[in-house]
Design a protein around this nucleic acid. Structure first.
Lengths: 150, 150
DNA sequence: GTCAAGAAGTTCTGTTTTCAACCATCTCAG
DNA sequence: CTGAGATGGTTGAAAACAGAACTTCTTGAC
């Protein structure tokens, strides 16, 4: 609880900062150069592909991808233009709308996923021992849970 | 080396994604609401404050903050407008220039640092045991080193 | 019923980021 | 020397983002 960070803590903190930005950057770059998709595109395709009927309400999608409503709305605009998703109106709640995966979007995901997973492996998973990676996962889970609940 | 992620790996990977975006987001938000600084502003102030003469060459600063040259240049424009830094010409290499901390910039950092460190503690360091945090740091260091060398 | 309060999405405005083009300077082979 | 190529940095236009304002619809109290 002391006011400053110790040298060790400082190192750990900076390593975290560096790893998180470099990794995100590298993965997005590879995804984009190999498949023309941004990280945000990809994440949305994944969520939709895992949903019933391959579609989700905008606000659920925003919550699950940690994006603001505004950002998601623009994002979906672009993906509609690219043919990856469509908007569907919601009959139960006429304010609402769905984003739904198109066949093109599904195909794009199927194309990209193996390469993306390989990237994640080569830059993260395989750099660590299984124990290290599991411990990293548990620590991140704690941090993430804490941030969500507050 | 198998092509897919196991359920456990998947969980760890998503925990990482979630923790890294939520944490960055939260820290930037607190920094901005408490002190009117963006995360990028803050990081630059820190680097400059730690440098000899409280100034750095643009390209060194870009490398150390993991930003593109272009982004840094725009960023420094804004910080010059805000009075936090100034540009200084470089006499050894007349193509080059320095970004140098102003007194205002120094003061802004001194004001912000304790709160920022407290945020880092409360959302990351104190959420984990010292061992967990140290392990996290070591793992991140490995990942980051690997990404830098390739 | 009706109206206030709130929720779902979109849109608007201003800011930040990216990418490519650009200028100036330096380096060094010939 | 000289000029080709590399390096340091800036610029401008287009894309992406955040936050607030706005529209439409739903809900619940009365």
């Amino acid at each position: 609880m002391s006011g400053w960070l110790s040298p060790d803590e400082q190192r750990s903190w900076r390593a975290w900062l560096s790893a998180s930005t470099l990794l995100a950057d590298r993965l997005n770059r590879e995804l984009h150069s190999q498949h023309g998709l941004t990280g945000a595109d990809y994440e949305i395709l994944v969520r939709l592909s895992e949903s019933a009927d391959r579609r989700m309400r905008m606000s659920d999608l925003a919550a699950s991808t940690l994006a603001s409503r505004s950002r998601l709305s623009h994002q979906i605009d672009r993906m509609v233009d690219a043919g990856l998703v469509t908007r569907e109106t919601c009959s139960e709640d006429r304010r609402g709308s769905f984003a739904a995966l198109t066949d093109t979007g599904w195909d794009a995901l199927v194309q990209a996923a193996p390469d993306h997973v390989a990237s994640v492996r080569s830059h993260l998973v395989d750099v660590l021992t299984p124990e290290e990676f599991a411990a990293l996962g548990r620590a991140c889970q704690k941090v993430s849970d804490r941030l969500k609940e507050q």
